[in-house]
Design a protein around this nucleic acid. Structure first.
Lengths: 354, 354
DNA sequence: ATGCAGATTGCAATCGATTGCATAATTAGG
DNA sequence: CCTAATTATGCAATCGATTGCAATCTGCAT
């Protein structure tokens, strides 16, 4: 029971630094075989409770942890999930949207709760298929992708390869992969309806409808107008670039060319904040001259001056559902249903009635 | 050369779904042994160029990837690094500071460049030592920790265990682990000096000096005052809570109790924004009544109204250095030097002279 | 033709765990 | 006291790659 693990041992040229603990070491100290230790630690019913407890305590006291690669190799069970965040090729810039951080945090928690590790990986948005390698090399058991962008086809390709996959994004027709997302149509309707009810009539839509999620929010924007018997003028659909600097120019352009608007529905809070900042520079008062509604409800929105009205996406729930849906794929054979989560309109100062 | 890989093969009860490709499959198709394939793919000089190229192309065309767990097990080389983000026990709340996202992005890029995978892991800040398991189970080759907080002792414990470790934070006395961080003292001096030069004399310091990084910035704040022959009043050292809501109350309390101040140095941009927002609610004008300087220079700072003066931390460089320092530990035996990166004062509207 | 150096390639052991099957220990029944 | 049934444990093969050493091949000089 008191053997010295730091003694030379098998290796002829033993190093001064102590060797990592192996299962056979535990076995020797417990006076059993490695098989028994393995079964005890994995809770096999073949092992008596007394032995199981004795081994478990021994392992804990020695701070022993099973070697993950070995277990993975032999058992074929991999408890790692890749979370893939695509980046845009030209800029390769970092995602700076706090919404992503929130999602990452939520995913990290959910995965940990389920006993999974999270491998964070950035891949070129133009070559999403490369993410397949993470799965095909046995590196991970499945993939969660944040940022559907306009890569519907590539995602379908991944799904065809039978790779367990869950995507945060919009539900699209002829979609072979599973998505979790907020109800973008409803969100767009809520935001726009709120602005219309406040009496605004020239509402600019800021966002790039090449992205499915944004396109659906735009549909909501259109439907809300229809319900009021209105038809929004096309020049108020403003395609925004990724970079905040570009957004400034766009806003300035609109103002100079007198494409007057009395409200803005921006498809992310970050975008809304940039717009507000720029409008302020041009001497316009928010919400008096222009009312603004964003999307996401990031933490800062409440503390931005003026506090930002927005459509809240259920972040916590979203992360949980992504993990759930992925684990369902790992467990069963049938593909689970995609999930559309409800959104909520949060009215704050930036769109308050005067 | 045209054998059918989807045919039953070795397994008697072969499944309909096609089996994962093995190195032996590549070997068979190339008419060589698995050893040769392994060496070819790993660029061993024992293999002739012609064979190497032929095998490499075959592998690529079949979309073959080496099984990571098997390689890891046999070769002992693990190309995964854990990035650990501690969370505070009581709230278990997500980090919402965009600075973290920036750091994660930078780390992800640097690690990818060096051919490493990134395992993102949240651990209880009170039990940081648990992070050791990631290393001891062979899960990762080393650990990068973001958020030193006040867990100096726990980090030293990890270092004693000889775990390759790099920490984003402050350089402290009797420190056994390596840190990378910005020059907090200098940063604090820069920000405070700038405010003093602008003629401000009652500068409130917002932050919790229980955290080493914040304490150093506070030292810089004090030194700047000394250089002006001034002594800041103690009631202007404001210990801030984590939650933004709490910050509002604090600011309100200060104003009610007439602890007058004409400037604020906040130890993060997010904090500065909350303070500005609250001061605005109380009818104070920024920077006319109160000048504000933050810390970090997150992306939004430029677009916040008023745009935020701040001390920029070199994020990109920080991530790179963290990775470098960790890889140095993996390569050599001696512990590399900790790194202190220069900071830069960015003056914007929130502290501009009237 | 033979021998030999140098360049390639294959054989088989190995990494650290898991697991099917055989064996040992225990208990119960006759 | 012996045998069968039951329970607990150990043996040895295995997961998919890597690598030391032996074997083969090639070309060239003898």
């Amino acid at each position: 029971m008191n053997e010295d693990l730091t003694s030379p041992g098998n290796t002829p040229h033993s190093l001064p630094s102590r060797r990592r603990l192996h299962m056979t070491d535990i076995a020797r100290l417990a006076g059993v075989s490695a098989s028994t230790v393995s079964r005890a630690l994995n809770g096999s019913p073949l092992i008596s409770d007394e032995t199981r407890i004795r081994i478990a305590e021994l392992a804990r006291s020695l701070n022993y942890t099973v070697h993950t690669a070995a277990r993975n190799l032999r058992s074929g069970n991999n408890r790692t999930i890749a979370v893939v965040v695509p980046y845009q090729t030209p800029t390769r810039q970092h995602i700076s949207d706090p919404f992503f951080l929130g999602m990452l945090g939520s995913l990290a928690d959910s995965l940990t709760d389920q006993g999974y590790d999270m491998l964070l990986s950035r891949v070129d948005a133009e070559h999403l298929v490369e993410a397949a390698q993470l799965y095909e090399s046995g590196r991970v058991a499945g993939i969660i992708l944040i940022g559907q962008w306009h890569h519907h086809d590539q995602l379908n390709e991944l799904a065809v390869k039978n790779i367990p996959l869950a995507v945060w994004g919009a539900l699209l027709p002829r979609q072979l992969y599973c998505t979790v997302g907020s109800d973008n149509l409803e969100g767009g309707k809520l935001a726009t309806g709120h602005l219309l009810e406040s009496g605004r009539r020239r509402i600019a839509f800021f966002g790039d409808i090449a992205f499915p999620e944004v396109a659906q929010r735009y549909q909501g924007y259109l439907q809300a107008h229809q319900q009021f018997g209105l038809q929004p003028p096309s020049e108020l659909l403003v395609k925004t670039p990724f970079l905040a600097a570009g957004v400034r120019e766009i806003v300035t352009y609109l103002l100079i060319h007198k494409h007057g608007f009395d409200a803005v529905f921006a498809c992310s809070d970050l975008l809304a904040m940039t717009v507000i900042s720029t409008l302020g520079k041009h001497g316009l008062a928010i919400p008096h001259d222009v009312a603004v509604v964003g999307y996401d409800d990031i933490a800062l929105s409440e503390y931005f001056p003026p506090s930002l009205s927005t459509v809240r996406q259920p972040l916590e729930k979203g992360g949980q559902m992504l993990v759930n849906i992925l684990l369902q794929q790992l467990a069963g054979t049938q593909r689970p249903q995609s999930v559309v989560l409800p959104t909520q309109l949060i009215v704050r100062e930036s769109s308050q009635l005067d």
